[in-house]
């Protein structure tokens, strides 16, 4: 059993990745005076209180005005600043999508879009506050890498990488507690999947809050004698086509899990590669194209077949379809 799996087992401490994000942002802002935070009255929900206290003039709060927020960020970048736009992902990506397209992606500005409380993190607040379309919307745009870290350590590593990367990115963060999966010296590499667990019978590909669930599922499968490979695909665009092709060839079946609609998200991105290079049976788990009923994120993920048991069951059924 891998060290990673060991950490996931038992009763691991759960962390809100926003804490790692703002800790890293503040550490970087302390040494890079060009870094500014841009938000839409979201100082609290984006955990920018510490940033505001340290650098009040570098915290640019445009009020409840997402279109302006993204445009302002593009202008700040034009003026030599390094803006981190921190806002609830549902409003950032939904309300300001055209600004993201024209001012950020097409204009290729050095703006870091940080979608906070993405997926179904707002749970019971309902589908208006769920951000389960953002992979599809943003990965449809050229120039903007789409990244959904799996734990606090990867969140910090990705935020640190974002500063060194010149150009726009979309960093999709949750607030749902997740255990640490990576060792503390983990380095983020754009477009590279992390092999979390080796296996030859089936591959489970996940990211964000689903990666640790996929690890649990692989544990359950191993109890039935099934060796599941687990890939953490935090970069949805550019996708790691090489790791996907290898998984298809070596394991012959792929399950994808995402806190996102199954229309156009991680599963679709994986399938685009699979059909092109090596078609194998796939099962895409995610929100099945509906507005979710009332419930917490974890409740809804279970409901949509993404409890560890649910993922394991999908994997088992999929293996039966292998040629």
């Amino acid at each position: 059993m891998s060290a990673v799996t060991e950490q996931v087992r038992g009763n691991p401490a759960l962390h809100d990745c926003r804490d790692a994000f703002t800790r890293t942002l503040e550490a970087m802002a302390a040494v890079n005076s060009d870094i500014v935070a841009v938000c839409n009255d979201s100082v609290g929900s984006s955990k920018l209180g510490g940033f505001k206290e340290k650098w009040p003039e570098r915290l640019i709060n445009v009020g409840i005005a997402e279109q302006n927020m993204v445009g302002v960020a593009a202008g700040l970048a034009n003026g030599g600043k390094l803006p981190f736009v921190c806002a609830a992902s549902c409003f950032l990506t939904g309300r300001a999508l055209e600004q993201i397209k024209a001012d950020i992606a097409y204009s290729n500005t050095n703006v870091k879009l940080c979608g906070i409380s993405s997926g179904m993190a707002y749970g019971e607040l309902g589908p208006t506050h769920h951000s389960i379309e953002d992979f599809a919307w943003i990965r449809a745009l050229p120039n903007v890498p789409v990244i959904a870290p799996a734990d606090s350590i990867e969140t910090a590593a990705a935020a640190e990488w974002a500063v060194s990367h010149v150009g726009p990115i979309f960093l999709r963060l949750s607030r749902v507690g997740v255990p640490d999966l990576f060792s503390s010296d983990h380095k983020f590499e754009l477009g590279r999947a992390d092999l979390m667990r080796e296996g030859a019978d089936v591959t489970i590909i996940a990211n964000g809050v689903l990666t640790h669930r996929a690890m649990f599922a692989a544990d359950l499968l191993s109890q039935s004698g099934i060796a599941a490979r687990v890939l953490n695909m935090s970069t949805v665009r550019p996708i790691d086509a090489e790791a996907i092709e290898k998984a298809a060839r070596e394991t012959g079946a792929i399950v994808t899990c995402e806190e996102h609609t199954i229309f156009g998200g991680l599963g679709s991105a994986v399938a685009e590669v699979v059909v092109d290079v090596h078609p194998v049976p796939m099962k895409m788990l995610g929100v099945p194209g509906i507005f979710a009923p009332t419930g917490s994120a974890n409740f809804l993920l279970d409901e949509f077949g993404m409890s560890p048991g649910g993922i394991a069951e999908s994997a088992t059924r999929l293996i039966d379809k292998k040629a």
Binding site: I60, G71, V72, A74, G75, L76, N78, K81, A102, D103
Partner: peptide, 12 residues
């Protein structure tokens, strides 16, 4: 789109 971007420039 232009005015929000202009606000960001002026702020910078």
């Amino acid at each position: 789109h232009g005015l929000p971007v202009g606000v960001g420039m002026a702020k910078a």
